[in-house]
């Protein structure tokens, strides 16, 4: 039997609160290299929750996400340097980046899958060029230090709370008509248009929202890390963000968390020598794409369903695996 919606939503909310608490404890308690790993996982989870909207629900592989991430980090640092209050600077940084997201979306939401990937990849490349070349504003290839705008405790609390609130927002959005529309676009965009979904507008909104998540994560990253440099916002980072969502399970609530943990874990924790961890990630990503299109979470959910109800499943489900549209398991 399925639990009533109220109970389910309550359980998810409680889980997310618990997640935020755990995130805070880890952020505050773990030091050194491992502390850096925790920070990155938390920051990526916040950023990727946005990517999970446009790419997970909508099926649009955005490679511009790291550019939004950079936008939040650099712009907030810039406003802070000018001596503006941090809260205002952060809000402006997120707002301006979302404006940038709007422009990117206006141009590229007309394109489909592969063109979209190419176009958004270009945005990342150009932002990287700006970061390395506009030395007056960005500090150039070596980056620049960022002053503490929020107190350290405030930054930690904001980081931890953003994880839970971000995922909570995703959970709600995925259950509204907006989520259904995005999923319809992922399944068949032409058909979606022909049942009345204003697809261009829906994609636009998803892209702008997603850029907001990226920018906010960037603001917090710059605050905690204290230094920002172009090397943190490369091409490769934008692939890895895509990889994280794909590995976690596109469109699933916890995909940003699981995906970030896998990707960051591989690149930061396991020291296999230069390149090797990324080779392993590449192989893993291709294997998951080929064999388990639902990612780690999708695979687990399918396994759980198969274990739970073997007899009726054999009748109705055919050889083609049926995609589950619930965002959370």
């Amino acid at each position: 039997m399925r639990a009533s919606p109220l109970v389910r939503h309550g359980a998810v909310a409680a889980g997310l609160v618990a997640l935020s608490v755990v995130a805070y404890l880890l952020l505050a308690g773990v030091q050194g290299d491992r502390g850096q790993v925790v920070l990155l996982v938390v920051v990526w989870t916040i950023a990727l929750t946005g990517l999970n909207l446009i790419m997970g629900l909508g099926g649009y592989p955005s490679l511009a996400h790291v550019a939004f991430f950079a936008g939040g980090a650099y712009l907030s640092a810039y406003f802070l340097e000018r001596g503006w209050p941090m809260a205002l600077g952060a809000a402006l940084a997120v707002g301006l980046t979302m404006l940038g997201g709007l422009v990117v979306a206006l141009v590229f939401s007309r394109t489909r899958g592969q063109y979209f990937a190419i176009g958004t990849m270009f945005c990342t490349a150009v932002v990287y060029l700006v970061l390395t070349n506009a030395t007056g504003f960005t500090g150039g290839p070596n980056g620049k230090p960022v002053d503490l705008g929020f107190s350290m405790t405030a930054t930690l609390v904001l980081l931890a709370a953003s994880v839970g609130l971000g995922l909570g927002a995703f959970y709600v959005l995925a259950r509204t008509r907006f989520g259904d529309r995005l999923r319809a676009i992922r399944e068949d965009e032409d058909l979606a248009r022909h049942v009345g979904v204003p697809t261009a507008r829906v994609k636009l909104v998803a892209m702008v929202l997603s850029s907001g998540f990226g920018a906010w994560a960037g603001v917090l990253f710059a605050q905690y890390n204290g230094v920002i440099a172009p090397s943190q916002f490369t091409f490769v980072q934008s692939f890895l963000m895509l990889v994280a969502i794909g590995l976690g399970g596109a469109g699933r609530l916890l995909a940003p968390l699981v995906g970030s943990a896998i990707v960051i874990g591989f690149t930061q924790l396991i020291k296999l020598g230069p390149g090797v961890s990324q080779i392993v990630l590449g192989v893993l990503f291709i294997l998951v794409t080929l064999l388990v299109p639902g990612g780690v979470l999708g695979g687990l959910a399918q396994l759980a369903r198969r274990l739970r109800r073997t007899p009726p499943a054999a009748e109705t489900e055919r050889s083609t695996p049926v995609r589950v549209k619930e965002a959370a398991s």
Binding site: P274, V283, T289
Partner: peptide
């Protein structure tokens, strides 16, 4: 292996790029 699933193509292509570049790096 993805001829029948064009939607997976960008993902596989990016994965391969990651592998090839890092083989060179290695």
């Amino acid at each position: 292996w993805i001829i029948e699933r064009p939607a997976a193509a960008p993902a596989v292509a990016l994965g391969l790029l990651l592998i090839l570049q890092n083989v060179a790096l290695r």
